[in-house]
Amino acid sequence: MSAFFYWIEDLFVNVLFAPYDFFRFMENWWGANTINWLFMIIGFLAMVYWMGQLKIFNDNGEEDKSSTSHSYL
């Protein structure tokens, strides 16, 4: 079982986080945080899209707003 966890460690350290090793030793702050800023921009755009979709459904009255989760609520 320990070999499985060592495999997960190897996957993340040597494969998935390998691009971060390139940015770790850069002197430029903007260059070192490019990936983080890209993830933040993608997340912000996804949130704006999601809120727009929620507004469309709310304006059309398609959302069921009845509270039927539990009788004690």
Rank of each mutant, 00 (worst) to 15 (best):
S2G: 15
S2K: 13
A3I: 10
A3S: 12
F4L: 03
F4Q: 01
F4M: 10
F4Y: 00
F5H: 01
Y6M: 04
W7A: 00
W7T: 00
I8T: 00
E9K: 09
E9G: 05
D10R: 03
V13N: 10
V13E: 11
V13P: 00
N14W: 01
V15G: 10
V15L: 11
L16G: 03
L16W: 14
F17Y: 15
A18F: 13
A18K: 14
A18H: 11
P19K: 06
Y20S: 12
Y20K: 02
D21I: 09
D21W: 06
D21G: 05
D21Y: 00
F23I: 02
F23Y: 07
F25P: 04
M26S: 11
M26D: 05
M26C: 09
N28E: 04
N28A: 06
N28H: 06
N28K: 01
W29K: 11
W29C: 06
W29A: 11
W29T: 07
W30Y: 09
W30G: 06
W30P: 07
G31D: 01
A32H: 00
A32N: 03
A32Q: 03
N33S: 04
N33Q: 05
N33F: 04
T34L: 10
T34R: 02
I35M: 13
I35V: 15
I35E: 06
N36Y: 08
N36K: 08
W37C: 07
M40W: 09
I41L: 03
I42D: 04
G43K: 00
G43Y: 02
G43I: 04
F44I: 09
M47H: 08
M47K: 06
V48N: 01
V48P: 01
V48W: 01
V48R: 04
Y49I: 15
Y49S: 13
Y49T: 11
W50Q: 12
W50I: 10
G52A: 09
Q53W: 11
Q53H: 11
Q53K: 11
L54K: 10
L54I: 13
K55D: 15
F57D: 14
N58L: 12
N60T: 13
N60L: 15
N60C: 13
G61T: 03
G61P: 07
G61F: 07
E62A: 12
E62T: 14
E63H: 11
E63P: 01
K65Q: 12
S66M: 06
S66H: 05
T68A: 07
T68S: 09
S69E: 14
S69W: 14
S69D: 14
H70M: 12
H70N: 12
H70G: 02
S71M: 14
Y72Q: 07
Y72P: 05
Y72G: 05
L73N: 08
